[in-house]
Protein backbone atom coordinates (compact mmCIF):
# COMPACT_ATOMS: atom_id res chain seq x y z
CA UNK A 1 0.00 0.00 0.00
CA UNK A 2 1.37 3.36 -0.95
CA UNK A 3 -0.36 5.48 1.62
CA UNK A 4 -2.87 5.13 4.36
CA UNK A 5 -5.24 8.00 4.93
CA UNK A 6 -6.84 8.60 8.28
CA UNK A 7 -8.57 11.08 10.57
CA UNK A 8 -7.32 13.17 13.44
CA UNK A 9 -9.54 14.49 16.19
CA UNK A 10 -8.57 16.85 18.97
CA UNK A 11 -10.97 15.54 21.54
CA UNK A 12 -9.93 18.14 24.10
CA UNK A 13 -11.73 20.91 22.32
CA UNK A 14 -14.65 19.07 20.80
CA UNK A 15 -17.84 20.58 22.19
CA UNK A 16 -20.08 17.82 20.89
CA UNK A 17 -21.97 20.17 18.64
CA UNK A 18 -22.92 17.52 16.03
CA UNK A 19 -22.08 19.88 13.18
CA UNK A 20 -19.78 17.32 11.57
CA UNK A 21 -22.49 14.68 11.84
CA UNK A 22 -25.08 16.88 10.19
CA UNK A 23 -22.71 18.16 7.51
CA UNK A 24 -22.00 14.55 6.58
CA UNK A 25 -25.68 13.65 6.55
CA UNK A 26 -26.50 16.62 4.37
CA UNK A 27 -23.63 16.09 1.96
CA UNK A 28 -24.40 12.42 1.58
CA UNK A 29 -28.15 12.77 1.75
CA UNK A 30 -28.47 10.17 4.50
CA UNK A 31 -31.81 8.95 5.74
CA UNK A 32 -32.93 9.08 9.34
CA UNK A 33 -31.07 6.70 11.54
CA UNK A 34 -28.06 6.51 9.25
CA UNK A 35 -25.03 8.39 10.47
CA UNK A 36 -21.72 8.02 8.72
CA UNK A 37 -20.09 10.30 11.24
CA UNK A 38 -21.38 10.12 14.73
CA UNK A 39 -20.80 12.24 17.76
CA UNK A 40 -20.74 10.11 20.88
CA UNK A 41 -21.32 11.51 24.34
CA UNK A 42 -19.54 9.84 27.24
CA UNK A 43 -19.96 10.63 30.85
CA UNK A 44 -18.98 9.17 34.15
CA UNK A 45 -18.49 10.00 37.78
CA UNK A 46 -21.13 11.07 40.23
CA UNK A 47 -22.75 14.26 41.37
CA UNK A 48 -24.38 13.85 44.73
CA UNK A 49 -25.93 15.79 47.55
CA UNK A 50 -24.33 14.83 50.82
CA UNK A 51 -24.80 16.69 54.10
CA UNK A 52 -26.60 19.34 52.12
CA UNK A 53 -23.69 20.16 49.83
CA UNK A 54 -22.86 18.98 46.37
CA UNK A 55 -19.90 16.77 45.65
CA UNK A 56 -18.99 15.81 42.15
CA UNK A 57 -16.34 14.00 40.22
CA UNK A 58 -18.38 14.03 37.05
CA UNK A 59 -16.72 14.17 33.68
CA UNK A 60 -18.06 14.21 30.19
CA UNK A 61 -16.50 14.30 26.80
CA UNK A 62 -17.35 13.78 23.20
CA UNK A 63 -15.91 11.77 20.42
CA UNK A 64 -16.72 12.41 16.82
CA UNK A 65 -16.05 9.29 14.81
CA UNK A 66 -16.51 8.16 11.23
CA UNK A 67 -15.07 5.07 9.59
CA UNK A 68 -11.47 4.59 10.65
CA UNK A 69 -10.39 3.03 7.38
CA UNK A 70 -8.58 0.48 9.47
CA UNK A 71 -5.32 -1.13 8.66
CA UNK A 72 -6.89 -4.45 9.54
CA UNK A 73 -10.46 -3.86 8.39
CA UNK A 74 -12.44 -6.76 9.77
CA UNK A 75 -15.41 -5.44 7.86
CA UNK A 76 -13.69 -6.01 4.53
CA UNK A 77 -11.94 -9.21 5.59
CA UNK A 78 -15.26 -10.74 6.54
CA UNK A 79 -17.33 -9.34 3.70
CA UNK A 80 -18.38 -12.35 1.62
CA UNK A 81 -18.87 -10.50 -1.65
CA UNK A 82 -15.93 -8.16 -1.74
CA UNK A 83 -18.33 -5.23 -1.75
CA UNK A 84 -16.46 -3.84 1.23
CA UNK A 85 -12.91 -3.32 0.15
CA UNK A 86 -9.79 -1.42 0.96
CA UNK A 87 -8.29 0.74 -1.74
CA UNK A 88 -4.69 0.03 -2.60
CA UNK A 89 -3.57 3.57 -3.17
CA UNK A 90 -4.76 5.23 0.01
CA UNK A 91 -6.15 2.53 2.28
CA UNK A 92 -9.63 3.99 2.17
CA UNK A 93 -12.28 1.37 2.89
CA UNK A 94 -15.25 1.61 0.57
CA UNK A 95 -18.49 -0.21 -0.11
CA UNK A 96 -19.48 -0.96 -3.64
CA UNK A 97 -23.23 -0.56 -3.46
CA UNK A 98 -23.79 -2.68 -6.55
CA UNK A 99 -21.97 -5.60 -5.01
CA UNK A 100 -23.25 -5.32 -1.46
CA UNK A 101 -25.98 -7.87 -0.77
CA UNK A 102 -26.88 -6.51 2.64
CA UNK A 103 -25.87 -9.61 4.58
CA UNK A 104 -24.85 -7.43 7.51
CA UNK A 105 -21.72 -9.39 8.31
CA UNK A 106 -19.61 -6.24 8.25
CA UNK A 107 -21.93 -4.77 10.88
CA UNK A 108 -20.95 -7.64 13.17
CA UNK A 109 -17.32 -7.24 12.30
CA UNK A 110 -16.64 -3.57 12.96
CA UNK A 111 -15.89 -2.67 16.57
CA UNK A 112 -16.80 0.98 15.91
CA UNK A 113 -20.43 0.52 14.88
CA UNK A 114 -19.59 2.02 11.53
CA UNK A 115 -21.29 0.03 8.74
CA UNK A 116 -25.03 0.57 8.85
CA UNK A 117 -27.80 -1.19 7.02
CA UNK A 118 -29.83 1.28 5.04
CA UNK A 119 -32.35 0.01 2.60
CA UNK A 120 -31.02 -3.25 1.20
CA UNK A 121 -27.33 -2.52 1.52
CA UNK A 122 -24.80 -1.36 4.03
CA UNK A 123 -23.38 2.12 3.85
CA UNK A 124 -20.72 3.99 5.71
CA UNK A 125 -18.29 6.88 5.53
CA UNK A 126 -16.50 6.91 2.20
CA UNK A 127 -14.00 9.57 3.26
CA UNK A 128 -15.62 11.89 0.76
CA UNK A 129 -13.46 10.39 -1.97
CA UNK A 130 -15.39 12.45 -4.47
CA UNK A 131 -14.38 15.69 -2.79
CA UNK A 132 -10.86 14.45 -2.22
CA UNK A 133 -10.48 13.64 -5.88
CA UNK A 134 -11.42 17.25 -6.60
CA UNK A 135 -8.74 18.42 -4.20
CA UNK A 136 -11.24 19.35 -1.53
CA UNK A 137 -11.49 18.38 2.12
CA UNK A 138 -14.06 15.93 3.42
CA UNK A 139 -17.29 17.69 4.38
CA UNK A 140 -16.99 16.94 8.08
CA UNK A 141 -13.47 18.32 8.34
CA UNK A 142 -14.46 21.61 6.77
CA UNK A 143 -17.56 21.81 8.93
CA UNK A 144 -16.08 21.58 12.39
CA UNK A 145 -16.61 24.87 14.15
CA UNK A 146 -13.94 24.10 16.71
CA UNK A 147 -11.45 23.02 14.06
CA UNK A 148 -10.71 19.78 15.82
CA UNK A 149 -10.98 17.49 12.80
CA UNK A 150 -8.20 16.87 10.32
CA UNK A 151 -7.35 14.18 7.82
CA UNK A 152 -4.36 13.12 5.82
CA UNK A 153 -1.76 10.40 5.48
CA UNK A 154 -1.86 8.68 8.81
CA UNK A 155 1.91 8.60 9.27
CA UNK A 156 1.97 12.36 8.93
CA UNK A 157 -0.85 12.74 11.41
CA UNK A 158 0.92 10.42 13.82
CA UNK A 159 4.11 12.38 13.46
CA UNK A 160 2.28 15.58 14.26
CA UNK A 161 -0.06 14.37 16.97
CA UNK A 162 1.20 11.06 18.33
CA UNK A 163 -0.40 7.68 17.99
CA UNK A 164 -3.26 7.47 20.48
CA UNK A 165 -6.14 5.68 18.82
CA UNK A 166 -7.86 4.42 21.89
CA UNK A 167 -9.41 6.38 24.72
CA UNK A 168 -11.79 5.45 27.49
CA UNK A 169 -14.98 4.34 25.82
CA UNK A 170 -13.39 3.00 22.64
CA UNK A 171 -12.67 -0.63 21.80
CA UNK A 172 -9.17 -2.04 21.78
CA UNK A 173 -7.31 -0.51 18.86
CA UNK A 174 -5.44 -3.72 18.22
CA UNK A 175 -8.56 -5.37 16.83
CA UNK A 176 -8.62 -3.46 13.58
CA UNK A 177 -5.76 -0.97 13.83
CA UNK A 178 -7.81 2.13 13.06
CA UNK A 179 -6.28 4.91 11.00
CA UNK A 180 -7.16 7.40 13.66
CA UNK A 181 -5.22 9.75 15.86
CA UNK A 182 -6.79 11.28 18.93
CA UNK A 183 -5.56 13.97 21.22
CA UNK A 184 -7.53 12.78 24.21
CA UNK A 185 -9.74 14.85 26.42
CA UNK A 186 -8.05 15.04 29.82
CA UNK A 187 -10.66 12.70 31.29
CA UNK A 188 -10.55 10.21 28.44
CA UNK A 189 -7.24 8.78 29.52
CA UNK A 190 -6.43 7.52 32.96
Amino acid sequence: MTKQYGFYVDQQHCIGCFTCQIACKDKNDLADGVRWRRVHEFHGGDTILENDVYRSNVFAYWLSMACNHCENPKCAINCPTGAMYKREEDGIVLVDQDKCIGCGYCVWSCPYEVPQLSGNTVTKCNFCVDLQSQGKNPACVDACIMRVLEYGPIDELRQKYGDVAQVKGLPDASITKPSLVITPHRKAIE
Partner: peptide, 19 residues
Protein backbone atom coordinates in the same frame (compact mmCIF):
# COMPACT_ATOMS: atom_id res chain seq x y z
CA UNK B 1 -30.20 -10.69 2.76
CA UNK B 2 -30.95 -7.24 1.46
CA UNK B 3 -30.52 -8.53 -2.08
CA UNK B 4 -31.42 -12.24 -2.13
CA UNK B 5 -31.02 -12.40 -5.90
CA UNK B 6 -27.33 -11.74 -5.58
CA UNK B 7 -26.84 -14.45 -2.98
CA UNK B 8 -24.41 -16.30 -5.18
CA UNK B 9 -21.96 -13.43 -5.01
CA UNK B 10 -21.43 -14.17 -1.37
CA UNK B 11 -19.03 -16.86 -2.59
CA UNK B 12 -16.65 -14.27 -3.93
CA UNK B 13 -14.46 -13.82 -0.89
CA UNK B 14 -13.45 -17.34 0.04
CA UNK B 15 -9.98 -16.02 0.48
CA UNK B 16 -10.80 -14.31 3.75
CA UNK B 17 -14.48 -14.48 4.64
CA UNK B 18 -15.89 -17.25 6.76
CA UNK B 19 -19.29 -16.28 5.50
Amino acid sequence: LGKPLLAMTSLFNLFSSWL
